[in-house]
Structures are given as C-alpha cells and as structure tokens.
C-alpha cells in the first residue's frame, strides 16, 4: 500500500505542475494578443456620432479600472491567480458585467451533454465493432464496415456536418438544423422539452459519431488482431473455452486497456467543446462561447474557458491513471 501512496503523491504533484504551466501559458497568450478589449468597447460605443477625445480618454481610464487591467503585467498576473484560487474569473468584458463563471456554467451543460453522449456512443460502438472485426476477420460484413470506417475517418467533420444538414434539413427536412431546443420554448423538465432537446441534438451527435467512429474502430481492430495471436487466446481456444467468453474476457478485456486511456483523453477534451460542430449547428455551448469571446477580445472569458478545460483534462487523466490499476492488475505492483 505504501507503493500506491508514493504513486498517488507523485501523480498529484504532476497534476499540479501541468495545471500551473497550462494556465500560465494561456495567461501569456491571451495577454499577448493584439486585440485590446478596452479599445474594442470604445470602438463599439463611439461607432455612431462623434465623441470628443477627452471623453474617450476618460472612458478608456474608467474601462481599464473596471476591467481590472490597471497596473503592470506582473500585478495583473498576481491578481489573476488570486481570483483563480477562489474560482472567480472576474466579469466578462464583452458581456459586462455578467461574471465569466456564470457564462461558462450556462454553456457547459450543453457542451458536456452533446459531447458526453456522442463520445460515449462513439467509444462503445467503435470498440465493439472494431473488436468483432478484429476477431471475426473473415466476416465480409465487418470487412465492409472496416472499409466504411476507413473512408469516413479522414473526412473533416464539418463536411459531414454540412452533409447531414443538407440531407436532413433541406432535402428531407425532418430535423431542426440549429439551436439547442425550440425557440421560445419554456425550459421545463417535461416530455415536450426533452423531446425538443433530443431532436435538436440528433444532427450534431450523429455528425460527431459518424466521424469519430472510424478512429476507435480501426484502433480496436488492430489491437484485437494483435491480442488474438497471444498465447493465452490460442490456449483458451485449444481449451474449448466458449467463443463468446474468449472474445469478451480474453480478447476484448486485454485490448481495452489502451482504449480506456484514449477515452479519458477525449472525455477531458469535452470541455473544450467541439468548436466547429457547435458553430455549424448553432449550439449554445462552450465552443460557441469561446469563439465569440476570442472575437471580442474578452480576456477574462477566454482565460476562464481555457482554465476550466485545463483543469478538466488534467483531472480526468488523473482519475483514469488512478483507476488504471483496477483495469490492468499488472500496474498494481509497480
């Protein structure tokens, strides 16, 4: 057990280091962008009609104070960390004075819902089909599935998304093409709302599943076709162990170990949002929020989103690492 606590401690240290470096990089990058949120706001305010230079200078001064952009970069850096420590990313600069955290919390359920469902569906389907294809190598149906997966895999997913939009939104208009739920609908926990939610998520989810499937499929297929040649599989076959048992407990179980790591990585990446998918389908998630905040030069919001996703990715990877020994007993004794 002492071995495990040493492992746990070093792993936690790694986690802290990764989070620290990641947040620093996003702080530097956002503050190095040429877009100035103050100038953006002034430009917006002075778009119509003329304002005297003195008034503009005063506006600039008060906006700087408001946005917390006063002081040297070092002071800004320190106050940024003070705020991060209590989970406060300050007010959004583009949707002033709504706090950044409120905006992020509003967007997260959409993105997580969309991506969690599609990632899990993709992972399960891809691994099952890939596992079957690797084990029953002579099935012509599964070979065909392999060709399909290989054909779909390199297509950029926005192309697939547009294709789905054209087919199900225009040629055969059965599904809504934009938004998270029907406009003007009351957000209540009832059947009509849930149905509308599902209907709106059908296209974005299918586009993500269609494109993501190929990767898991091919990965699992090649893992399985290696594991199939392992001695313990041959031996189980010679022992007359039931085929289904061999496939599940011998072949799949051993191939799944690296795939679970992959799942952890893509689950962590969920918080980044599928930026392009959300754009194409007008989905009110984190991806859309991130794009608009970058355009508006909204430091605080960009930093808030990147910090949340850095934390999310690192935490999921950490959790999976800690759970790994349950999956592969050989890790336990290290």
């Amino acid at each position: 057990m002492r071995g495990y606590s040493v492992y746990l401690l070093s792993r936690l240290g790694q986690f802290a280091l990764v989070v620290f470096i990641g947040i620093n990089i996003s702080f530097i990058v956002t503050h190095a962008t040429p877009i100035d949120p103050v100038e953006q706001s002034i430009a917006a305010a002075t778009q119509y009609g003329s304002t005297s230079p003195e008034a503009i200078a005063m506006m600039r001064q008060s906006l700087r104070e408001l946005y917390g952009l006063e002081g040297s970069p070092w002071e800004q850096y320190l106050s940024f960390w003070r705020r991060v420590a209590v989970g406060d990313f300050g007010p959004s600069l583009s949707a002033f004075p709504t706090p950044v955290s409120v905006l992020i919390w509003r967007a997260i359920p959409w993105t997580v819902g969309l991506l969690l469902v599609s990632t899990v569906i993709t992972w399960i389907l891809g691994n099952l089909l890939g596992g079957f294809a690797g084990y029953y190598r002579r099935s012509s149906l599964l070979r065909f599935a392999g060709i399909l997966a290989m054909a779909f895999h390199p297509i950029p997913y926005y192309i697939v998304a547009f294709l789905l939009l054209i087919v199900f939104g225009y040629l055969w208009p059965v599904l809504p093409i934009s938004g998270g739920y029907m406009m003007n609908m009351e957000r209540a926990f009832n059947l009509t709302f849930i149905f509308s939610l599902l209907k709106h998520s059908a296209l974005p989810i299918s586009s993500l599943v269609l494109v993501g499937l190929g990767g898991w499929f091919m990965g699992m297929r090649s893992l399985v076709s290696n594991v199939v040649n392992e001695d313990y599989v041959t031996y189980a076959e010679l022992g007359g162990v039931k085929r289904r048992r061999i496939l599940a407990s011998y072949v799949m179980r051993n191939s799944l170990v690296p795939q679970v790591t992959g799942l952890a990585m893509s689950l962590g990446a969920i918080f980044n949002g599928a930026i392009i998918t959300e754009q194409v389908f007008g989905y009110p998630g984190v991806g859309t929020l991130l794009i608009s905040s970058v355009h508006a030069g909204d430091y605080s919001l960009v930093l808030g989103i990147t910090t949340v996703s850095i934390l999310a990715v690192s935490t999921t990877v950490l959790l999976i690492d800690l759970l790994y020994p349950l999956l592969d007993p050989r890790v336990r004794t290290v």
Partner: peptide, 12 residues
C-alpha cells in the same frame, strides 16, 4: 503449450 508461462490471461 510451448511457452506455457504465458498461456494464462494476464488480466484475470
């Protein structure tokens, strides 16, 4: 089997 050291399923 030959190499009977490696014929047992490593994860069970």
């Amino acid at each position: 089997m030959q190499g009977s050291m490696n014929v047992l399923n490593p994860v069970r």
